[in-house]
């Protein structure tokens, strides 16, 4: 009997698998744990200082917080579209969509710097009260992750431009993309928690 009639499937795309390096997924888990501990510490501390937290939260700029969210989800969308385009060997759109991700990340950082400047100008700092200790440390912890994410997106963009990713290889691209989505995911919880919910 001829067994060559049924060749093995060309790709294993139908099989469940993680996109990106396994190491990044362990790293993502560790990062999410760190963010999680921070979030719960905030919620616990707030439970015993509700009035003070609500009063201090009212001073935050919700508009800039919402703008931050829109920039991150749009950036994540751009990165997803870039990976899709690279897989289909459409390199020009892949570069362009990665550019969308990078610009959104940079715009997030600029918006945050303006937000911090306004806070410092108003005389607020980590020492002001417990709420601001959480506000500054949580958002800055996240800020540093966006800085690293923007660097990663920049490197991916350069390699995409050189034709380094395509249907032959998207492993590195998927790995960087997964990290960027983690940064987005953390902010998705951080924004309502610190800026809005009371």
């Amino acid at each position: 009997m001829d067994t060559t009639i049924n060749p093995p499937p060309a790709t294993t795309d139908a099989e469940p698998h993680l996109h990106g390096d396994l190491a990044i997924w362990f790293f993502i888990l560790a990062e999410l744990m760190a963010f999680g501990v921070f979030f719960i510490a905030y919620a616990v501390t707030r439970a015993y200082n509700v009035e003070a937290f609500n009063a201090a939260q009212a001073g935050l700029d919700r508009n800039i917080g919402a703008l931050n969210t829109i920039l991150l989800i749009t950036g994540s969308w751009g990165v997803v579209r870039s990976v899709q385009a690279a897989r289909a060997d459409r390199l020009v759109p892949a570069v362009r969509w990665m550019g969308v991700g990078l610009v959104c990340g940079l715009a997030f950082l600029v918006a945050k710097i303006f937000e911090y400047r306004a806070k410092f100008a108003a005389g607020l700092s980590m020492d002001t009260d417990t709420f601001h200790m959480f506000y500054f440390s949580l958002t800055f912890f996240h800020f540093m992750h966006v800085v690293l994410g923007v660097c990663i997106l920049g490197i991916l963009l350069l390699k995409l431009r050189r034709g380094g990713y395509g249907s032959h290889d998207v492993h590195g691209l998927e790995t960087g993309a997964a990290y960027w989505h983690m940064v987005d995911l953390a902010w998705i919880v951080l924004f309502p928690l610190v800026y809005v919910m009371h």
């Binding site: 990165v79 989505h181 995911l185 998705i188």
Partner: peptide, 10 residues
């Protein structure tokens, strides 16, 4: 939003 990021973006 978190579920969508996890399932569809990641």
């Amino acid at each position: 939003k978190g579920v969508l990021v996890i399932l569809d973006f990641m």
